[in-house]
C-alpha cells in the first residue's frame, strides 16, 4: 500500500435528485517523499481529489488512506486531528486570517496542537525564516504583497512539520517570478522530506514535480 493510497474512489455531488460525479473510480498511489502534480482542466475533479486526500470531504465510495489510516473511518474530531498532524495546506487564495499578524497566522495550527504552548512562537518564527519573511512577522496580511502572503501561507503549512503538503493552484494568484519562487520553495520542502501534492493546470509548473497525474472528467487519464 502506498503512503497515500486511493482505491476505486468515487465522489459524487448532489443537486436535488441529480447526481454529479466529480471523481469516478480513481485508484492511485503516492509514495512518501514524492512531489506529484495533479493536472487537468477546470471541472476535471482535481481539486475534489485533493480534498479527498486532505480529509476535507468523504468519498462516496472507495477507500482513501494516508499512512495506512482509512480516512473514511475517522469521525469529525479524529479527522481534524489527522489534518493537523499529517497535512499542510497551501491555497490559491492564501486564506490568511486578516486580523492576525503573519507570525500569528503561522502559529494558528499550533494553537490547537497539544504541548506546543511554550514553543509555538519559536516554531512559527523559524517557519517564517525558512520562507524569508522573518523580518515581516509583525505585519498584517493587508500589509504584505501577494507573494509574501503566499509565503506566509507556506510557512503556516510547514510549521507543524507535516509529512504531506497539499497545494491547490499555489501560483494561481501570483506573477510568474513570484510563482517560480513559490515553486522553488515547494521543491525545497520536498527535498527536505515532505510529500508534496500540487494541483495545477499549468504544464510548466507540473514539470517541477517528479510525477504528473492527469485527470479528466473525474478519471485518471495518465499517471
Amino acid at each position: 500500500m502506498a503512503f497515500i493510497d486511493l482505491k476505486d474512489v468515487t465522489k459524487a455531488f448532489h443537486a436535488g435528485e441529480e447526481e454529479y460525479p466529480a471523481v469516478r473510480g480513481v485508484s492511485l498511489g503516492i509514495e512518501s517523499g514524492e512531489f506529484v502534480a495533479v493536472m487537468g482542466p477546470s471541472g476535471s475533479g482535481k481539486s475534489t481529489l485533493l480534498s479527498l486526500v486532505g480529509g476535507l470531504s468523504h468519498a462516496t465510495s472507495g477507500i482513501v488512506s494516508v499512512d495506512g489510516i482509512d480516512l473514511g473511518s475517522l469521525g469529525p474530531n479524529k479527522l481534524s486531528d489527522f489534518r493537523r498532524e499529517y497535512l499542510g495546506f497551501v491555497f490559491q487564495s492564501f486564506y490568511l486570517v486578516p486580523y492576525l499578524t503573519a507570525l500569528e497566522n503561522v502559529m494558528l495550527p499550533l494553537t490547537v496542537q497539544p504541548g506546543m504552548n511554550g514553543t509555538a512562537g519559536d516554531a512559527a518564527q523559524e517557519a517564517l525564516r525558512k520562507v524569508g519573511l522573518a523580518a515581516k512577522s509583525r505585519r498584517l496580511p493587508s500589509q504584505l504583497s501577494g507573494g509574501e502572503q503566499e509565503r506566509v501561507a507556506i510557512a503556516r503549512a510547514i510549521v507543524n512539520k507535516p509529512p504531506v503538503i497539499l497545494a491547490d493552484e499555489p501560483t494561481g494568484n501570483l506573477d510568474t517570478k513570484t510563482g517560480d519562487q513559490v515553486l522553488d520553495m515547494l521543491q525545497d520542502l520536498n527535498r527536505g522530506g515532505h510529500t508534496v501534492v500540487m494541483v495545477t493546470h499549468n504544464v510548466e509548473n507540473a514539470k517541477r514535480a517528479g510525477r504528473t497525474i492527469e485527470i479528466r472528467d473525474g478519471q485518471v487519464v495518465s499517471n
Binding site: 476535507l56 469529525p76 474530531n77 489534518r83 495550527p109 490547537v112 496542537q113
Partner: peptide
C-alpha cells in the same frame, strides 16, 4: 465562513 473553513482545514475541531 472561509476563515472558519481554514481553521477546520488546518486541524481545528468543531469544539475549538
Amino acid at each position: 465562513v472561509q476563515e472558519i473553513g481554514l481553521f477546520r482545514a488546518i486541524g481545528f475541531r468543531a469544539g475549538h
